[in-house]
Design a protein around this nucleic acid. Structure first.
Lengths: 223, 223
DNA sequence: CGCCAGATTGAGGAATATCAAACAGAGTGG
DNA sequence: CCACTCTGTTTGATATTCCTCAATCTGGCG
């Protein structure tokens, strides 16, 4: 993909060569990797597929805290806290590497390179959370969705036949909107031929138009 | 405060004893510590006062990414990135310690304790960002504001005469609302005698009522 | 006293949620 | 191969939340 160093210090081969025990895991759509509050024994790297990190509000409403793609890390909060801070659920058939947190801890104390890699991703996570805060705090539904679609596409080399395993409720839980509203906007985007969708595949037809909407031009309504 | 270890590994005395150069800095309300995009030479610890980290949208709208209190760190993104990711502005007269990032880098490589301390705070920052995502994504204005007031109060030992240097636009920029809406809700809270406000000081009169609202009980309107 | 910036209030409108109903598509059993 | 059901999506009508714009108010300060 875009960044070969994406696994630097944390790719399975390298870790195994350091006598770290790395378990390969495959899971299907909907599988729960861990639940929020579970005591944290393992961390994971996502090798293929997609995973959502979720929390729930008191009333049971689900909120998606982060979406993970190939190369992302999850469960690493266990390096500092005893329990997982979110639930992790596979959105699509996925492959992961499971790392023992205790071993990882030791390794990271010995190897600056591993430390660096973890810190790097941590930084990325913080960055992306802050971006979300801006999106949620300052943009309207259309703009949020447009931004999201473009960002999603960035994780793939092409604009056509993108894997898109998110349901409408998932999108809603990520964007802070109602399912119906998301559905309406997606329909709008399709009517305007900005995107196309079929059986879990997405195609970005008019990235520029989406980018315009994502920028939230004032008074530039769809129509 | 609540947590004596809050400066662990990063209090000025300790750092100085490690032959780290630590510059004490005092600033007044409105002072800019650094701007977004500035090349990052220094990091800071906030010893007293309050600071906001801000970003701006293309249209110029300000968004407050994080609010910092006594003991918080800022500018540490400079350990991984060359430039500051946000602007930092003092909300009140504040005192800080300025640390040279290069020195800090060296120190953290040598001393696990310092590393630990930084990592700890990083985790906290991520945690609080994720909490914000939930707030912004799933709660209504009233609930957001109520939550915020209670969280603000948590940073002080008492519920009366809390320093509260935030303007209405500041609150709005933090909560993702319009100034007017914030003003209305604050007025509501005062009318219901949940809070009281005078000259930059806040008093929480009915923490439980605020907590109820923060929980966003359905159908439990103010009235 | 008069002035000014920030805060409040009001009225109207836009954005979004809610509730209910219709719809589409993938299995499934006949 | 065709209904039939089930789940997820779309659509519609309506209510609510929130924003915008304009006007008024307040408190500090020259």
């Amino acid at each position: 993909m875009r960044d070969q160093s994406i696994f630097a210090g944390l790719n399975p081969e390298e870790l195994r060569s350091l006598s770290m025990e790395v378990e390969d895991i495959a899971c299907h759509q909907g599988d729960v990797l861990y639940r929020m509050g579970d005591s944290a024994r393992y961390a994971y790297t996502l090798r293929a597929g997609a995973v959502k990190l979720v929390k729930f509000m008191k009333n049971g409403q689900e909120v998606i805290i982060r979406l993970l793609h190939r190369g992302d890390l999850l469960g690493f909060e266990g390096m500092q806290e005893a329990h997982h801070r979110h639930g992790a659920i596979a959105l699509a058939p996925s492959q992961l590497c499971r790392l023992d947190l205790a071993e990882l801890q030791r390794l990271s104390e010995r190897l600056p390179k591993v430390r660096e890699a973890i810190l790097q991703r941590w930084q990325q996570a913080l960055q992306s959370s802050e971006d979300r805060i801006m999106e949620l705090g300052a943009k309207r539904a259309e703009a949020r969705l447009a931004t999201f679609l473009l960002q999603w596409a960035e994780h793939y080399p092409q604009l056509r036949h993108l894997p898109f395993p998110l349901s409408r409720p998932d999108l809603a839980a990520f964007l802070g909107l109602s399912t119906e509203h998301v559905s309406r906007i997606m329909a709008d985007f399709k009517r305007h031929a900005f995107i196309q969708e079929q059986r879990g595949q997405l195609e970005i037809l008019a990235p520029q138009s989406l980018a315009d909407i994502a920028g939230k031009l004032p008074d530039h309504k769809l129509d």
